[in-house]
Every structure is written in structure tokens, then in C-alpha cells.
Design a protein around this nucleic acid. Structure first.
Length: 255
DNA sequence: ATGGCAACTACAAGTTGA
């Protein structure tokens, strides 16, 4: 049995103590992080190693940045999508115990009429293209991260207010469902879940207290892994801590 | 309709996130 998780930490510099606390409470086998916001020379590798984890990372100044933490040896690290030239550090992939992990921080998109939205859609199309190849090489493939897409209305606290907006618009959702058409399963939706459970809540307007959230952080698994998956939960506990990330970790159990 | 919060850079206020 192993547990794998993803968490957008919104600055690892600020959130390192919480990551270490959370790993102490939840000693998962693999943890994918997004929005580390650290250049590689500033990455807190020693602290993470001391907690019992190997780590690989790809960062930049101020924005983006991803990392994979693992209790087991990490091999074959790839940074970014080889099919998509990108100055932004949003992908790191690695093999751990025969499973290929892709840790992704999918672009936010800002607004459907923005250039950033066009970048998001192009980025997603290139992700599809790359993962189609990766699936052939790695039948046991897991895509974990902040997708910045709420796939369905039930993943949105107020669907009427969000119609057509960034994070829920039809082209973004189509890109998410394309991953499912390619054979990926949304681990969270494989199971009965509480209603109105989200993975992100706005810092403003008491978003968390009022549960004004979106489910935008996901674990997608190819069929052999989905068949092994026996649970998937969103852990709201660290969202209640002092100075939290606005995202909660998502954890899947594989038998 | 706008901004609201948080983190960043940099030192003031602007940018970004979702």
C-alpha cells in the first residue's frame, strides 16, 4: 500500500514548516508540490531530506515552481514538457517504484479573453500530446497537480455565478475531459465523496469559512493505477492552520 | 462593477493568483 499526494503550497519558503508538519502527520510515499516560488539554489533540500524524503525540483523566481518528494529512490527526472518550449517551470516528472509521476502546475489562465488563457489552452494541448507518448512508455502513469480547472458544476460552490468564467469555462473543461478520454481516471470521483468538498478556497471574503471553494487540484491515474486505487481524499486540515496555503492537499491510496 | 487576501519584488505600489 502506498499513498501519493499533491499540494499547491503557494510559496514553499513560507509553507515549509507546514509541509514538514503535514508529512509528519501524513507520511505519504510521494508528495507533489506546486507554486514553490523558489529558484533551485534556494530550495530547502536539506530540511526535506532530514524529514526522510528524497526530492527533485524545478523552480524559478517569484512564480510557479514544482517539486516531487519521495520516500523511495527517484529516477529519470524530466523538467517541463519536451514538446512545449516554456520559460515557466510548471512540470517535473520522475519514476518511483515503477510508477511514472507527472507533477504539474497548469496555468491559471486569468480570464477567457486574456492572452494567458490562450497560453493555458496551448499548454494543455501540448500536455495531451506529450502524455499520449508517455502513456505508451509508462502504462502506470499518474498526473498530479493544480489543474486550475474545476471539471464539473459540482466542483464549484456557486456554479451559476461561475458560468463561463476562468477555471470552469467550456474549453478548459474540454481539456480536462480529454485527459479522461485518453484513459485517465479522476481518482477523487472513483469514490463516494461528501458534497461540496473543494481543494481551493479564496483567501478573501472568508472563503474557507463559508466553504466558497473550487475543486481544481486533482490526481489522474491511468487504468492500471486506477484499478489499484482504493481511496482518494482532500485533507482540509492544513487549510485551517495559521497562515495556510489557499489549497488543500489531495491524497490517493494505491494498494 | 470593483475589491476583498496573500505572496512576491523591492522599498511603494504594482503584479499575480484562482
Amino acid at each position: 500500500m502506498k499513498k501519493i499526494a499533491t499540494w499547491n503550497v503557494n510559496s514553499l519558503k513560507v509553507r515549509l514548516p507546514q509541509v514538514l508538519q503535514w508529512l509528519g502527520d501524513n507520511p505519504v510515499d510521494v508528495l507533489c508540490l506546486q507554486e514553490t516560488k523558489l529558484t533551485d539554489d534556494k530550495f530547502p533540500q536539506a530540511e526535506i531530506n532530514a524529514a526522510g524524503y528524497e526530492v527533485v525540483f524545478s523552480g524559478q523566481k517569484t512564480y510557479n515552481g514544482v517539486a516531487i518528494l519521495s520516500r523511495h529512490p527517484i529516477t529519470d527526472v524530466v523538467k517541463n514538457n519536451p514538446l512545449f518550449e516554456d520559460e515557466q517551470q510548471r512540470i517535473i516528472a520522475a519514476t518511483i517504484e515503477g510508477v511514472r509521476y507527472v507533477c504539474a502546475y497548469i496555468p491559471n489562465g486569468q480570464a477567457p479573453d486574456s492572452e494567458k488563457y490562450q497560453y493555458k489552452l496551448k499548454w494543455l494541448a501540448a500536455l495531451h500530446e506529450w502524455l499520449a507518448q508517455e502513456q505508451l512508455l509508462h502504462p502506470r502513469l499518474a498526473l498530479l497537480g493544480d489543474y486550475n480547472i474545476a471539471p464539473e458544476d459540482r466542483d464549484v460552490h456557486d456554479p451559476a455565478a461561475w458560468v463561463g468564467q476562468n477555471l470552469v469555462s467550456e474549453p478548459e473543461r474540454a481539456a480536462f475531459f480529454h485527459l479522461e478520454k485518453m484513459g485517465f481516471t479522476d481518482a477523487f470521483r472513483k469514490f463516494e465523496q461528501p458534497e461540496k468538498l473543494y481543494s481551493w478556497w479564496d483567501y478573501r471574503q472568508m472563503g474557507f469559512r463559508l466553504n466558497k471553494g473550487l475543486r481544481i487540484d486533482h490526481i489522474l491515474l491511468t487504468a492500471p493505477l486506477a484499478a489499484q486505487c482504493t481511496a482518494c481524499v482532500i485533507d482540509k486540515v492544513p487549510r485551517k492552520w495559521e497562515q495556510p496555503s489557499d489549497h488543500a492537499p489531495v491524497v490517493a491510496t494505491l494498494d
